[in-house]
Structure formats: structure tokens, C-alpha cells
């Protein structure tokens, strides 16, 4: 017994090692996916190590240095690489610090609303009948209720905080997952391989997790990415109303929103935080596309085929 356990332990470690190597190798097959992954890692690292990276205190104001353009323009100040805002705060430092709230809210909201919406959709689609009708009417009610009104209501009662924003945004964004999941579950449910699984003796839990859920990966990834962008902008709107991220803390959305008033005199105030949002979403997209292909055996084989052909052609020329 002990002997076999001892023999298994190193093999498991090496299996983890090979898995990591396989992941790296497979990511290498898809250059855009690799770039997306690396940029994402960089952005997350930037958020984590914000205190070490930021050249200035993001909240430090300086009336003398206000609305300084980026360093490479005439009148630019080399101390403020991306310029300063109307209160003389360093734009670069604010972007570095803002990544924290933006990523936290975006990821937390997508995960929370996604989980809830997927569960509702799975139950509605799998059980069907009256349960389905009730759950879907609930979704309809929530959709028809203006989200911003609900947010204002809840935030003014509970008081603004990061947790409140996450919960409130999750509460107003889960419906799309429920609808998409329900539709897919209903169509996959009727697939012969689900009947085959039932005949073989699989229970509902196994059928949902092993046979139905994997088919939801690609639509869910697509929706979750779109939703991430939405959430970032929604957080900006709430923060702009003074109900979200509270100064001196900052987020990209808040910076875009407050920089809007200065678009004509100081374009860098909206451009750089906006670019940060765009780059983040783009890299998530590229990486998610890789994940989508990797989780679908058929697509995955095609990718290997492509890269093999590409290598052969490159070798010939």
C-alpha cells in the first residue's frame, strides 16, 4: 500500500508539470491568444503591484501642474508621462491604481451574475414546464425594470461601497445568462446523446455537468466578455453619479467619465483610461477565443492542422 502511494506521488507531480507544459505549448500554437494572455497577466500584475509601480500618489493634487499634456508634447512635464488632469493628478498613476477597482468590479460582477444566471438557466431549461415559465417570467420582470433605478434605490439605502456596486451590478446583469443558457440547454437536451446518457443510467447532475454544460462554454464566454465591457462602463456611470467608487479611490470608468468635460482641452484624460479599458477587453477576447477553441475537440484539431500546415509551408519557402 505505502509502496504504491510512494510511487504515485511523484507521478502526480510530474503530471501537473506536463499539464503546465502542455498548456504553454498549446497557447504557443495560437499567437493572438498568447498575446492576449500575456497582456492580461501584465494588467493583473499592474493592479497587484500598483503601489510599487505608480510614480505618484494617484490622489495628490497640484494646482500648478494641472492639465499638463503627455510628456512628449510641447509644454509636457517629464514627471507626468501621460499628463495630468484638471486637479493636477498624474494620469498614469491613476490608470495604474484604477486597474484595481475596474478589474475587481468587472470580474466579480461577471462571475457573480454569470453563476446565478447560469444556474437559473440550467434549471429552467432542464426541468422545463411550470418551473421554466415562472423563472423566465422573473427574468422578464427584471429585464423590464430599469436597472439604474434599482441601483440608485439600493445604493442610497445601503450606502456606496465596492461590495455594494458588485452586488447591485450583478443583480441587474444576470438575466442575459439565464436566457442564453436556457435556450442552449433546451436544444442540447433533445440531442440523442443526452438520451443515450439517460439510458446508460446517468443521473440529472451528471447529465447537466458532463453532457450539457460543456456545450455552453462558447456562448457563455462570448456573453461574459461583452458583459465585462458593459460592467466597466456601468461602474463608470454609477461612479460618475457619486454612488460608486468613492474619491480618492479611482477606476478607469470614473476617469473616463470625469475626463469627458475636458475632451476639447485635454484629450489625454479620456484617451488613456479608455485605451486601458479597450486593451483589457481586447486581450480577454483573444484569450477567451483560445479557450473556446481549446475546449471544443473538433475546433482544436483544426487549429493543430492549421499550424502544422503553416509550419510546413514556412519550411518549404
Amino acid at each position: 500500500m505505502a509502496d504504491s502511494a510512494a510511487r504515485q506521488a511523484p507521478s502526480r507531480r510530474s503530471r501537473n508539470g506536463t499539464r503546465l507544459r502542455a498548456f504553454a505549448a498549446e497557447l504557443g500554437e495560437d499567437v493572438p491568444g498568447l498575446i492576449g494572455f500575456l497582456v492580461l497577466v501584465g494588467i493583473v500584475a499592474m493592479a497587484i503591484f500598483a503601489p510599487l509601480l505608480a510614480p505618484h500618489d494617484p490622489a495628490a493634487q497640484s494646482v500648478l501642474a494641472r492639465l499638463a499634456p503627455p510628456a512628449w508634447l510641447p509644454r509636457g512635464n517629464p514627471a507626468h508621462l501621460l499628463g495630468t488632469d484638471a486637479l493636477g493628478r498624474d494620469v498614469l498613476s491613476r490608470i495604474i491604481w484604477g486597474a484595481r477597482a475596474t478589474l475587481l468590479v468587472g470580474v466579480a460582477v461577471v462571475l457573480l451574475s454569470g453563476t446565478f444566471g447560469v444556474i437559473v438557466g440550467l434549471v429552467a431549461g432542464y426541468v422545463g414546464g411550470r418551473t421554466d415559465s415562472i423563472l423566465m417570467r422573473l427574468v422578464d420582470i427584471q429585464v423590464s425594470f430599469p436597472g439604474i433605478l434599482l441601483i440608485l434605490l439600493i445604493v442610497s439605502i445601503v450606502g456606496p461601497s465596492l461590495t455594494t456596486i458588485v452586488v447591485v451590478l450583478a443583480l441587474t446583469n444576470w438575466m442575459i445568462y439565464a436566457r442564453i443558457v436556457r435556450g442552449t440547454v433546451m436544444s442540447v437536451r433533445a440531442a440523442p446523446y443526452v438520451e443515450a446518457a439517460e439510458i446508460v443510467g446517468c443521473g440529472p447532475a451528471r447529465i447537466i455537468l458532463r453532457h450539457i454544460l460543456p456545450n455552453l462554454v462558447s456562448p457563455l464566454l462570448t456573453v461574459a466578455i461583452l458583459e465585462f465591457t458593459n460592467v466597466v462602463l456601468a461602474e463608470a456611470a454609477i461612479s460618475f453619479l457619486g454612488l460608486g467608487v468613492q474619491p480618492p479611490a479611482t477606476s478607469w470608468g470614473l476617469d473616463v467619465a470625469s475626463g469627458r468635460d475636458y475632451v476639447y482641452v485635454a484629450w489625454w484624460l479620456v484617451t488613456f483610461p479608455g485605451l486601458a479599458i479597450a486593451i483589457t477587453v481586447l486581450s480577454i477576447n483573444l484569450f477567451a477565443n483560445w479557450v473556446r477553441v481549446t475546449t471544443d475537440p473538433r475546433e482544436r484539431e483544426k487549429r493543430f492542422g492549421w499550424s502544422k500546415t503553416a509550419r510546413r509551408l514556412a519550411g518549404r519557402s
Partner: peptide
């Protein structure tokens, strides 16, 4: 009592390996 279905292309989950498909009945029982 088991069933063999008509269309083999749609009656096997495309996301599962053959080993998992054939082993599934044993696993669930």
C-alpha cells in the same frame, strides 16, 4: 437493458473521449 441508437454521429457526446464514453456506464453504476 440497453439501447443502440440510430444515428451514431449524434448519439455520442462530441466533447467526450471514446474511453470516457465507453467507460461511462461502468462509472455511473
Amino acid at each position: 437493458m440497453q439501447l443502440i441508437l440510430q444515428d451514431p454521429f449524434t448519439s455520442l457526446n462530441p466533447r467526450m473521449r471514446i474511453a470516457d464514453l465507453v467507460g461511462e456506464p461502468l462509472t455511473v453504476h
